[in-house]
């Protein structure tokens, strides 16, 4: 039944809600110890994709297998092999962390003896001890999210789906969760992680799928994605608000949508390196824009993302972040 070493294999996945095509044609494979990053703005189809592969949503077209088992025809087998956390699957708020893990451990049919040892191990390993015996409703966002993720790991599954696990977390909780994801991967777990954060995909993912409006717009390692965008970025700091508006006018569509009115910073993707940059700077200066600072830099994943998904998606993201 298996065609490759992939733990999770997805081919030409499709899903429509009424006339809206939420996922159009998504394919990927995730091997043991690999992290696949699904990167895209809100509504791009990340959650829909994860829900289909994790048996939570009916697949309209295409195929998905976990551990070689067909998600559509053998969901009950697939459920023995997966853990799901994030937007799609919550824990019981009235129960403590220990009780939640006990609940899911029982439902995963982990034998009684092994179960309590496993729960203690997870509580220790993920440093849940401090709040293990308080109801989940009293947790901070970070504690709650950590329990969400741990609950997906009770049965030590070979495939784990994390749907925006760090959305809304403070930087410290976020980096703690990143540590958890890395240690999972180093233990050979195949992970699909969706995120709106480029930095997160950059740091965690072995391979990134950039999704926009249900379609894969780019695919590759973080490095190749950055290389594919063969251009530098000219970052200009404008002195005042009037200058900022004037500069936007002068530059028109050349300015990156990431241009930030708050900090008066303008990003311009440039192909011709120094010459083109100088020409642009001169154009702005002649137009009466006072420039307080500038630099020419390598593109980040942010730039890749914006170049690929365009301004309208960015607006959608801004609303949610």
């Amino acid at each position: 039944m298996r065609t490759s070493d992939a733990v999770i294999a997805v081919q030409h996945l499709r899903k429509s809600f009424g006339s809206v095509e939420a996922v159009k044609d998504v394919s990927f494979e995730v091997g043991p110890g690999q992290v696949l990053g699904l990167l895209g703005p809100n509504g791009a189809g990340k959650t829909t994709t994860i829900n289909m592969v994790s048996t939570l949503l009916k697949i309209d077209g295409g195929e998905a297998t976990v551990g070689g088992f067909d998600v559509r025809t053998q969901p009950e087998v697939v459920r023995q092999l997966i853990g799901v956390a994030g937007q799609s699957a919550a824990v019981d708020e009235k129960l403590t962390a220990r009780e939640n893990l006990e609940l899911f451990g029982r439902l995963y049919k982990i034998p009684r003896g092994k179960r309590s040892a496993r729960i203690e191990e997870l509580i220790k390993q993920l440093d849940l001890g401090a709040f293990a015996d308080r109801p989940a409703s009293t947790y901070s966002g970070g504690e709650r999210r950590r329990l969400d993720v741990v609950a997906a790991l009770v049965a030590d599954p070979p495939a784990v789906f994390l749907d925006e696990p760090t959305t809304g977390l403070d930087p410290r909780s976020r980096s703690e969760l990143w540590g958890t994801v890395r240690s999972l991967a180093s233990n050979g777990v195949a992970i699909v992680l969706s995120t709106q954060y480029l930095e997160e995909a950059d740091r965690l993912a072995d391979e990134i799928l950039v999704i926009d409006r249900g379609e894969i717009v780019a695919q590759g390692t973080p490095e190749t994605l950055k290389q594919d965008l063969e251009r530098d970025v000219l970052e200009i700091q404008v002195g005042d608000r009037n200058g900022f508006e004037r500069a936007r006018e002068l530059l028109g569509p050349d300015a990156n949508p990431a241009t930030d009115a708050e900090t008066l910073r303008i990003d311009i993707p440039v192909h011709g390196g120094a010459d083109r940059s100088l020409a642009l700077l001169r154009q702005l200066q002649d137009g009466g824009v006072s420039i307080s600072n500038f630099q020419l830099r390598q593109p980040t994943l942010d730039d890749v993302f914006l170049a690929l998904t365009g301004p309208s998606s960015m607006e959608a993201e801004e609303i949610t972040t």
Binding site: L56, E76, S88, A90, F104, L107, Y108
Partner: peptide
């Protein structure tokens, strides 16, 4: 509403 049922759905139960 709380998403607990989605968790149950993903479990082999």
């Amino acid at each position: 509403s709380e998403g607990v049922n989605d968790r149950f759905r993903s479990l082999p139960m």
